[in-house]
Design a binder for these strands. Sequence first.
DNA 1: CATGAATGAGGCTTCATTCAT
DNA 2: TATGAATGAAGCCTCATTCAT
Lengths: 212, 212, 212, 212
Amino acid sequence: MSVTLPQSSLFAAKAKNMGKSARSRARLIDAALAVFARERLESATINEITREADMANGTFYLHFKDKEELTSVVALSLAAEITREMDEAMADIDDAVERVSLGTRQFIDIASSRLNWGAAFLQAFWVCAELRAEVTLYLRRDLERGVALGAFNVTVDDFLVEMVGALVNTALFARINGTAGPEAGSKAAEMQLRLLGVDAERAHAVAWRSIA
Amino acid sequence: MSVTLPQSSLFAAKAKNMGKSARSRARLIDAALAVFARERLESATINEITREADMANGTFYLHFKDKEELTSVVALSLAAEITREMDEAMADIDDAVERVSLGTRQFIDIASSRLNWGAAFLQAFWVCAELRAEVTLYLRRDLERGVALGAFNVTVDDFLVEMVGALVNTALFARINGTAGPEAGSKAAEMQLRLLGVDAERAHAVAWRSIA
Amino acid sequence: MSVTLPQSSLFAAKAKNMGKSARSRARLIDAALAVFARERLESATINEITREADMANGTFYLHFKDKEELTSVVALSLAAEITREMDEAMADIDDAVERVSLGTRQFIDIASSRLNWGAAFLQAFWVCAELRAEVTLYLRRDLERGVALGAFNVTVDDFLVEMVGALVNTALFARINGTAGPEAGSKAAEMQLRLLGVDAERAHAVAWRSIA
Amino acid sequence: MSVTLPQSSLFAAKAKNMGKSARSRARLIDAALAVFARERLESATINEITREADMANGTFYLHFKDKEELTSVVALSLAAEITREMDEAMADIDDAVERVSLGTRQFIDIASSRLNWGAAFLQAFWVCAELRAEVTLYLRRDLERGVALGAFNVTVDDFLVEMVGALVNTALFARINGTAGPEAGSKAAEMQLRLLGVDAERAHAVAWRSIA
DNA sequence: CATGAATGAGGCTTCATTCAT
DNA sequence: TATGAATGAAGCCTCATTCAT
């Protein structure tokens, strides 16, 4: 007797070979992603999440202490997964300008192409400090590298990282809402590079170079 | 018997000479600003707002249909007020580059220096579509002007406006949190101008020029 | 339009001339008394209490922070009321032997004759430390007096007071359950006096003397 | 692989040579004793008990129909065990006065010296009618005997037995709480004897006689 | 027999909103 | 207009009990 899984069930898929508890937990994470994607975090209820996961509400508490714990688990799982995919795609890119550009483009493409990811990410971003910290760190490394190499003409501090990060999030937001199309990543990357002091031509060239 | 008004009571002050109903309404708006500034919008309660306004909770519904209406009234009142102050400060600035720069700086300075405004604005921004629309429009005019005059080397579309707007909001956020100091406005403006294609030197010069 | 009050509504009756809030609060206390009297404290629910009081459940929280607060308010209100009635009845009794005897008899008679009081008292006794402290104090005073006057041949310490108190509570319990009839008070008093070292004859005489 | 049993595991020890089921059941009873001793009966959960017994929660229902059954089994097992030990210690005491005194002292000493027993007993006493009945019966026999022999100057009825029993329970309670020391048994016995009409001197002598 | 995940009823509490005064 | 008590739907969480393995 095989039951069709809901459309997006990455974590459930990954847990397919694990114990029953891990599978249920994964289903809850997937369900939470779906709910977080269509609802303000604050108004997402445990009931809605368990309904989405086809479970009884009490089951939730077998797997998570409360909504806050779920939120951060979802956020960090998502971040880990996105990061993993990005690292894979950027493993052999060394040039800082390319890395910043490609990082932004990949992030937006990945987050917006997987059902629920982007929207859930943006929700979680403002609520989960750990997530912010992680993302910030990731970004900062490449920015600092670029400055060290003389590619960027800025001072790297918290403020700069937040500003550059805001461009990424905003582009993702626009992409998800349909304000922007598939070119959102390139557009965002180009703006970032300009902001960082890369000259307009190079910024354009790098940001729009087709991805292998 | 005269009671001292709470520190920030702009709208109450403006309504001093109006009818009693308008005055109560204004007090509620001020109170909501204060509450929204220190609390997530969703967790702000009518009770807390009316308590802050020194009113009975039931009174709230004499002035607003529901919580949502309050939110948007607060947001739009705030926007109108900020806009008014900005317009005043920028009345005789014509140059597009200057306008964008000064607009950003003024906005951040005003919103962060008036008690409660900045935080409440940022909360409302994500909840009230009308507010977003209004802000966007304001910004867009100057961007288009700059492009028309050849000062900016970009295409103005919704996406661009959102990205530039994001820089403003993010800088305001940093300013309020203490991540950034009083120079936040200049820093943000400089980044914007670079992003828009203004050359680095001019961007710096304009963004950091001392305000009259 | 007059509504019949539920059978036992002492506190509601006392609050008849007070504000609406006080009246509702009093109704809740009466309702709690009724519920506590027929149910283990732990299994009494707020819902049941508000239903008994003909209120919506949410109303409860306008008047009490939580069940614990209600419990102690009920306990102490009850204690205050019983104490008041006892003091009235014993105002001009000086003799320690008489006081202990009469106190016990009065307590049992009062608590068992008012609907719900006895059962609620016994429940609250084990849960509310303040109540225990108050009752203990009341009893201790007369015991110490009796010892000082040479009427009792015991040492007054916490242990003694608890033991004597246990006799009172147990007699009340038996009275309420129907294990004992109206003579419970006299029987209990006689046992107490014997325990305290009063000779059997006097104990009997005092404990069974008819109350004015 | 031998696992050390928790400190107090009387019933598990007794079941050591019985079938597996009996052993598990015994472990649950011991665990329940431990939990009941440190927690209000109502707030003791099946999960906590099985955890204490190092079992899966579902296992509980192989051995007991429900929580209520467990409670009464625990209560009656405990009573049986205490009774057994008391009978042993009092096998050759004939004199009624001695029996009542010694019974009380033994009961308090046994229940308070075995880990968990006293507290669990007191909890169960008020919840389990069978337990009350059994204890009452035990006590009553000696009381009746004493009256028949002319040693006690009272009428034995339910009320009397409850009152005398209350002294025992209260003394045990005080002993467990630390309000009373090891002399609690003697003190309680002395009070009982006085209450029953034994003259003060004899009561004292008997109640404080050192136990063989 | 044992396991432990799952269930779902039910308790507690909050809060937007209504209503009698 | 203003008041503030009252309402009740809805969310959170616990826990006795069941069930598939």
